[in-house]
């Protein structure tokens, strides 16, 4: 076996990627928006994939992109979109001093791990040229199905567990009969016929109608001039991002009740300034 020579190009690659990856990772500690963090981490994962390939792990590099960046991080983004709610997070401490303690222990961990690897007299790197003779995926596959075959089979249990778990936490059994659109409509009309509310029959208003504000975070206004809260999507409401409607009286005093054009009808993005 001959020693491994590491090309200068790899060094350059490392020194470009590594700072970027650390920066991306730091977003975990300092960024406020969850989505930003997720995207930064996805970037770190891609960086890792490149490093794997540089480290003669072609198969892993590709798997990293497919599994981590493609599946895992996208699943995260998906859930963030679904959960959405507190996409920003207050960074104030709940336990006094906990942050410092955590930072200190993390720093200690970094120093410890760094010291351990830098101070160790590591053997001369061998490189994987010999091991990868039949191409990296083939060599990896051989190991998977020989030395690690038991672990491989065992991961099957893991995947089944994951599927069963995710299903049982999210899948709802339908109780009672299925309600289709037709029965729904008939029921509505029946209720209306029995003296129910007329608004049940017609569609509910969408947000931002009546021209003055046509963005999705502005409630619709009913005939009496009151805002219809349900017209805004739940996500915005839970986030607290819906906008308050000026009261009908205020607007009437200003001389332009709902339905009439503003005194100075806003154009384009100026709308926001007027609100503010």
């Amino acid at each position: 076996m001959t020693g491994l020579t590491i090309s200068a190009g790899e060094g350059v690659l490392f020194w470009i990627l590594a700072p970027l990856m650390v920066l991306g990772a730091l977003s975990l500690l300092f960024a406020r928006r969850t989505v930003h963090i997720a995207v930064s981490i996805a970037g770190v994962m891609v960086g890792l994939a490149v490093m794997y390939i540089a480290n003669e792990a072609t198969f892993l590099g590709v798997a990293q992109v497919v599994v981590y960046t493609g599946a895992v991080m996208m699943l995260f983004v998906f859930v963030i979109m679904l959960v959405g709610v507190d996409s920003t997070e207050s960074l104030t401490e709940t336990l006094r001093g906990q942050r410092w303690l955590a930072a200190l222990s993390a720093l200690g961990l970094a120093i410890l791990l760094g010291a351990v690897v830098t101070r160790a007299v590591l053997p001369e790197p061998v490189g994987l040229a010999a091991a990868n003779a039949d191409s990296n995926p083939v060599a990896v596959a051989r190991l998977v199905f020989s030395d690690f075959v038991f672990a491989f089979e065992l991961t099957g249990a893991l995947l089944i567990t994951a599927a069963v778990g995710a299903l049982s936490l999210t899948h709802r059994v339908r109780l009672g009969i299925k309600v289709d659109q037709r029965t729904l409509a008939e029921a509505k009309l029946k209720r209306y016929g029995a003296g129910g509310d007329a608004t049940l029959v017609v569609n509910r208003p969408g947000p931002g109608v009546y021209a003055r504000h046509n963005s999705a975070d502005m409630p619709a206004v009913d005939a009496a001039g009151n805002p219809v809260e349900e017209s805004i999507t739940t996500v915005l409401r839970v986030r607290g991002q819906e906008r308050e409607l000026p009261s009908a009286e205020e607007l009437a005093d200003a001389g332009h009740p709902y339905g009439s054009p503003a005194v100075e009808a806003p154009t384009g993005t100026q709308a926001k300034e007027i609100d503010a």
Binding site: F148, F150, L154, A157, L158, A162, G165, S168
Partner: peptide
């Protein structure tokens, strides 16, 4: 599997196999 695992990888996977259902 956990008590019988003779390499750290098998141990790790057994650890996960026993943990994931418990989390649920």
């Amino acid at each position: 599997v956990f008590p019988a695992a003779a390499d750290l990888l098998t141990m790790f996977i057994a650890l996960e196999v026993l943990s994931l259902p418990l989390y649920l």
